[in-house]
């Protein structure tokens, strides 16, 4: 039981990652798919940051009082990845808006049926 609370972050990482993937694949709404992609990315961020934690450590800002610091390297990687993730979802939202302009719907099955009708 005491080990379980230490492993909870890793389990949550699995659930979040699979949940994000599930939302991307199963939902028909394109905006919801973009949100699913954001959840998928956030799962990786939380996992990386929880790998960097040291028990009894403090934030990696050097002071005279602290003697142990958390690992700063994953923080730097995630700092870069968060900004890139926002750029990705902005591009996805622009694509969704353009799809809405052309088809007047953002549901996947409706677009599919419209496409089939226009091919005839």
């Amino acid at each position: 039981m005491s080990n379980f609370i230490y492993f909870w972050n890793h389990f949550a990482f699995i659930l979040l990652m699979v949940g994000g993937l599930f939302i991307i694949i199963t939902s028909q709404n394109y905006l919801k798919k973009v949100v699913g992609l954001a959840i998928f990315q956030t799962a990786v961020f939380v996992f990386f940051v929880s790998l960097a934690k040291v028990l009894d450590g403090t934030a990696p800002i050097l002071t005279k009082m602290a003697n142990a610091y958390s690992n700063p390297l994953p923080h730097v990687l995630i700092l870069t990845a968060i900004v890139v993730g926002v750029a990705t979802s902005a591009l996805g939202l622009a694509l969704v808006l353009q799809i809405y302009k052309n088809y007047e719907t953002i549901e996947e099955k409706e677009i599919e049926s419209l496409e089939l009708k226009s091919d005839k």
């Binding site: 934690k53 990696p60 923080h75 995630i78 968060i82």
Partner: peptide, 15 residues
């Protein structure tokens, strides 16, 4: 909570 204060700043502002 996980001591990543710079990441928390970025997430609160950008994310």
């Amino acid at each position: 909570n996980l001591d990543a204060v710079d990441v928390a700043f970025t997430e609160a502002a950008v994310g």
